[in-house]
């Protein structure tokens, strides 16, 4: 009886801790959301840039498909190519491209990370909540502008039931993976002077194999294989949604994203633990 009571009490206390943690990080996310709305001119500017970017990408792809005499490449036509590129851009816009990397790395390089250690939160989770807090509202706004711009200028593509069902999982997991990958790369600042050049190079290599400028569907098969092996391209599987023809191919994309998330979060946990030991606090 006593053991059961103890177990019940420990279970309740664990529930309370989890609830408190959830409330805490949700509040961090809420603050990030409020921050986004605090600067409407900036948000409008970003929306306008997104609209412009997908428009000129659309113009270029419509032009090359029309004038090259190719109605489709590997089954992908101009309309689907334009939408595939826009969906990759959507993943970038949901968290701000490279924002987490910059914040996290700056905290480490400037030594401000020591202040974070004293706060009643686990910094990688706080940073994650901060990055994801803006994602829902950004999704609504950026997806609306994408649909409006592309729908009116180039047309709306059709989605199969599998593609519709996997849209949100691929997007959410992609955004989560993108943020975690940025965190892991920024943690290298504990050991090297400035990891920014490494970030530039890796993120640009990702451009080639994640469909930022050329949809993966029209590239040779080895680019697609490479994209499965690189977390910075797995984050953008949403852009490959038109390659999903059945439940199996869709589940493969989601499964790979989940695997990367697990691996990268584990790596962050141990790297952060080791990195935090390197912090030396001066008396200033």
């Amino acid at each position: 009886m006593k053991t059961r009571l103890l177990m019940k009490s420990s279970h309740q206390s664990m529930n309370t801790t989890l609830r408190q943690a959830l409330a805490k990080y949700t509040y961090v996310g809420y603050l990030a959301y409020k921050e986004l709305l605090a600067y409407p001119a900036s948000l409008l500017g970003r929306l306008a840039i997104h609209a412009l970017r997908i428009t000129y990408l659309g113009i270029i792809y419509e032009y090359v498909f029309t004038h090259s005499g190719k109605s489709a490449i590997h089954g992908m036509d101009a309309l689907h190519a334009v939408w595939a590129l826009a969906l990759v851009q959507l993943v970038y816009q949901l968290t701000g491209s490279g924002r987490t990397f910059k914040h996290f790395k700056d905290e480490i390089i400037s030594g401000q990370i020591e202040v974070r250690l004293n706060k009643p939160y686990y910094y990688p989770l706080q940073s994650l909540a901060d990055a994801l807090g803006q994602a829902p509202i950004r999704f609504v706004l950026f997806f609306a502008i994408t649909a409006l711009v592309l729908g009116s200028a180039f047309g709306m593509p059709t989605f199969t039931i599998q593609q519709k069902s996997l849209f949100l999982p691929l997007l959410s997991l992609g955004v989560l993976l993108f943020v975690l990958t940025q965190q892991l790369l920024s943690l290298s600042a504990f050991w090297i002077e400035d990891p920014t050049p490494a970030w530039w190079v890796l993120s640009k290599i990702a451009w080639i194999i994640n469909g930022t400028f050329i949809p993966l569907a029209i590239l040779p098969a080895y680019f697609k294989t490479a994209s499965l092996l690189f977390p910075l391209s797995a984050s953008f599987f949403l852009g490959r949604i038109y390659e999903i023809t059945d439940w199996y191919s869709g589940a493969k994309f989601v499964g790979i994203q989940l695997l990367w998330i697990l691996l990268i979060y584990t790596a962050i946990y141990f790297t952060y633990k080791q990195g935090a030991k390197k912090i030396s606090i001066n008396g200033g």
Partner: peptide, 15 residues
């Protein structure tokens, strides 16, 4: 940083 930026821009050319 300079070499990093050169590689960064070179990626555009590959694309």
């Amino acid at each position: 940083q300079s070499v990093g930026m050169i590689l960064n821009n070179a990626a555009f050319l590959v694309v």
